[in-house]
Computed example of a mutant assay.
Amino acid sequence: MSVALFTLGGTIAMAGTSTGGPGGPVVARLTGADLVAAVPGLDTLGVPLEVQDAQAVPSANLTFAQLLDLVDAAAKAVAAGAHGVVVTQGTDTIEESAYLVDLVWPHPEPFVLTGAMRNPTLAGPDGPANLLAAARVAASPAARELGALVVLNDEVHAARWVRKAHATSTGAFASPDTGPLGHVIEGEVRILTRPPRRTPLRTDRSRAPRVALHTVTLDDDAALLPRLADTHQGLVVAGFGVGHVPSELAPVLGDLATRMPVVLTSRTGGGSVLRHTYGAIGSETDLQRRGLINGGLLDPYKARILLRLLLASGAGRDEIAAAFAEHA
């Protein structure tokens, strides 16, 4: 019995500077063994960590293909007896990585992602504490059947709800609509609520559909939108508030919806797109009537991941709408 640890780089793995002196930009230098050696208390975990150094890459450079390869490697570790999985990566895209994993991870063993907001050259680096908490969650029977989780600051977040809500704070991660699923308290994993699992999605590595994301802004003329159908296979719209756009955009989006799936989300970061409250041109009711798919509680970034996976699997519009009704 063990916990499989895969390292991908990011702030948690940075040490030293490119200039060789204080104040310079930090660079990634720590291996998985280095990370583990810096964490006091891992010897009380009760199970060993099996460390595998994956690609040392900034999280901004991660791709769907790399993350799906990581899922495959994690699945092999579970098949070999790992009780859970921990992945360290940069926090910039951890919410998106975690949601992609959650959509395809079929195993009861927890898949835990963590990182750091303060690198090891700074006072009070949070990486060791986050790694210890993540390992405890991965090893805990309480975390089974919860899919992919994000653990930082002793909080356990569900991948489908977590957001990076602050650029620099060690308490940067939040789940605006639900709060964390649980906490790590005095070394004990306390899960307070258990959301239902969704059926894992199938994947097709042979397809890489392009899905655009358009955030609606004040006085938005959307001049580039009509051309998207020539270069992309799907579109996510981050609308105002509960899912509204300027009236001039409504027919443009409606036309696009006849040519490819268009998903309506909210740019706010919390709350749901409505379905039948407002009826003006550009409202959620009007846009749905024009063929847009309601993204529900999913934020734009997660909606894009879900839509891309569905398109890669060959899903048609009706299947996509049904999947968003289930997942959002």
Rank of each mutant, 00 (worst) to 15 (best):
E96I: 05
R160E: 11
H276F: 14
R197H: 10
T178W: 05
V137N: 01
A79L: 08
I293V: 14
P196T: 09
V36G: 07
R163T: 15
T231Y: 08
T19A: 13
R29M: 06
R202C: 03
P120D: 13
L70C: 09
L67V: 13
G124H: 10
T285A: 14
L149A: 11
A134M: 06
S2M: 13
P120R: 14
A77T: 00
G115C: 02
D219M: 09
A98W: 07
G314D: 07
V262C: 12
P195F: 12
V262K: 10
V245A: 10
I281E: 15
P246F: 12
H157K: 10
A133I: 04
A133W: 01
L218N: 06
L8K: 03
R267F: 09
P226Q: 08
A229K: 12
V252C: 05
A73K: 06
G182I: 12
D230L: 12
T88R: 04
E145R: 15
P106S: 09
P48M: 11
I320W: 10
G9E: 05
I305F: 02
L307H: 06
R207H: 08
A280T: 14
I293P: 01
G270Y: 02
D43A: 14
I305S: 02
G23F: 07
R194H: 15
T114A: 04
N61A: 15
R205G: 00
G81Q: 04
T199C: 07
P176G: 04
R317E: 15
P58T: 07
V137H: 07
L132M: 10
L292G: 09
Y301C: 10
A139F: 03
A321L: 04
Q66D: 08
T203F: 10
T231V: 12
E248W: 04
A165K: 10
T19G: 09
L68S: 05
M117S: 00
E188A: 15
T215I: 03
G90W: 02
A15Y: 14
P58Q: 09
H244Y: 10
G23Y: 10
D255N: 15
K76F: 09
D126M: 00
G124D: 06
V112I: 11
D204T: 05
D92G: 05
V150H: 06
A56T: 12
G269P: 08
V236A: 03
V156Y: 14
L132N: 03
V101W: 07
P106W: 03
